[in-house]
Computed example of a mutant assay.
Amino acid sequence: MILLTGATGTVGGLVARRLRGTTALRLLTRRPDRAADLSGPRVEVCGGDFDDLGSLRSALTGVTSALLVSANPLTHTHDEHFLTAARACGVRQVVKLSALAVTDPDATDLITAWQRRNEQLLTASGLPWTLLRPRAFMSNTLGWAHSVRAEGVVRAAGGSAVNATVDPRDIADVAALTLLEPDAHAGRTYALTGPEAISAADQTRILGELLERPVRFEELTVAEALSRLRVRYPAPIAEALAESAARGRAGAKTQVDPTVAKLLGRPAGSYREWARDHLGAFRDGT
Score class of each variant (00 low, 15 high):
R18D: 01
R18F: 00
T23L: 04
T29M: 08
R31G: 05
P32L: 12
P32V: 10
P32T: 08
A36N: 07
L38Q: 05
P41M: 08
E44C: 04
V45C: 09
C46K: 03
G47P: 07
G47W: 01
F50N: 06
F50Q: 02
D51R: 10
D51L: 05
D52T: 01
G54T: 01
G54M: 01
S55G: 00
A59L: 02
L60G: 06
G62Y: 02
A66L: 01
A66P: 03
A66C: 07
L67F: 15
L68S: 15
L68R: 07
V69C: 03
V69G: 05
V69A: 04
V69M: 10
S70I: 15
S70K: 01
A71V: 11
P73N: 10
L74C: 00
T75A: 01
H76D: 15
H78C: 01
H78D: 13
D79Y: 04
H81T: 05
H81R: 10
F82G: 00
T84K: 07
A85R: 09
R87Q: 14
A88K: 11
A88L: 13
V91I: 06
V91R: 07
R92G: 14
R92S: 11
R92H: 12
R92N: 07
L97I: 09
L97K: 04
S98E: 10
S98H: 08
S98C: 11
A99Q: 10
L100F: 04
L100D: 12
A101F: 10
A101C: 06
A101G: 11
V102E: 05
D106W: 09
D109N: 14
I111Q: 11
R116L: 15
R117S: 12
E119H: 11
L121V: 06
T123W: 09
T123C: 12
T123V: 15
S125T: 10
S125V: 11
G126S: 13
L127C: 07
P128C: 13
T130K: 14
L132T: 05
L132I: 04
L132Q: 08
L132E: 09
R133N: 13
R133S: 09
P134V: 02
A136T: 03
A136R: 06
A136L: 05
F137A: 04
